[in-house]
Amino acid sequence: MKSFSPPLKISTPRAAPRLLWPLVALALIFAVDGIISPHFFAIRIVEGRLFGNLVDIVYRATPIAIVALGMAIVIGTKGIDLSVGAIIAIVGATLDWRIHMGDPHLLALAIALAAGVACGLWNGLLVAVLDIQPIIATLILMVSGRGVGLMINLIYGGSDPSFESPLLQGLSTGHIGLIPTRILVGIGLWIALWALVRRTALGLFLEAVGANPKAAELAGVEARAIKWAAYVISGFMAAAAGVILTADTHTSDPVSIGLYSELDAILAVVIGGGSLNGGRIYLLGAVLGAVVIQALTTSILTSGLPPEYNLVVKAGVVLVVLLLQSARTRAAVARLATGRKR
C-alpha cells in the first residue's frame, strides 16, 4: 500500500464552513418555532425518559440519520442507493414474519438484519460486478421491494401483523436512563462506521473509488470489492433503521413504512455538504442533515399549519437550505447586499 497516495485533497480542511450552513438552517427553524410556540423547547421527564419537542426531533431523526450514514458511504463512491426504503419494508416484514413463526426475538432480529445485508449484496452485485448504473440497479429493488414485503406478510396470513416484543420495542421506543435507546443505538452505529471509515484504510479506498475509479484501480485498489462493500453497508444501515421503525409501530406495513426515506436520506447527505459527484464522505454532515429535515417536519406538525401546506413549506425550506449552501448564490446575495456591480 506504500505506492498508494490519496487522489484528492487532504481530508476535511474546511469542515467548519461545510457544517455551518446546515447549522444556520437549524437555528432559523428553531427561531421560527420559538416565535410560534413559546413552549417548543420545554423538556420534561415523563415515564422515566426525556420528553419534549427537541427530544422528539433527535428521536425521530435517528432512523433517517442511520439510513443517511449508509447513503453517505454509497454516495462517496459516486453511487446512489434508491432501494433503502424498500429494504426497510423487506426487513420489517421479515422481522414480523419470524416473530409470528415463534423464533426467539434475538434470532428474528439477526435474520432481519441479514435480510438487509442480502439486499445490499444484491445491489452491490448489480453495480460492482455487472456494472449497471447505480440509479438503475437500485431502482429495481426500490420498485419491487415493497411487493416482496407484502408477499412475506402473506406467508403467515398477514391480516393482523401486529406484534409485541420487549426486546425489539426496548431497542426502538425504550430508554436507558433518561435517554431513548434508539438514540444510543444510532450513536453506536455512527461511531462504528466512523471508526471503519476513518480509522481503517476503507474510507480512503471508498473515496478514491468515488473520485476516480480508474486511477484508484491503477493504484491497486480493488474498486469492485470496495463498491460492493458500500452497498452492503447501506443495506445493513437500512436494515437497522427498518428494525427500529417496525418495532416502533408494532406492525409490518410494507406499503407505507419508510416511504420516501431514500429521498430523505439523499437530501440529508446533500444538506450535510455531501456531493453526488462522490469522492467525499461526510458522516457528521449526513447526521446533521437528517436532524434538519426532522426539525422541519416536527415544527410543521406542532405549528398547527393546515396539512395541505405541509409539503409546500417543506419544499420551500429545503430550497432555501440548498441555496444557502451554493457558493454562487451566496456571492450573488453578497453583491446585492453591498450594492456592487460586477
Binding site: T249, H250, L301
Partner: peptide, 26 residues
C-alpha cells in the same frame, strides 16, 4: 382543536399524535 394528516398509516398517526401531545401539554 388540532388537525393534521397521518397519511392513513400507523407510523403517520403515531408521529402526528406525538406532536399533538407536545403542543397541547400532554
Amino acid at each position: 382543536i388540532k388537525t393534521q394528516s397521518g397519511d392513513f398509516t400507523t407510523d403517520g398517526g403515531k408521529k402526528v399524535m406525538e406532536a399533538f401531545i407536545k403542543s397541547t401539554d400532554n
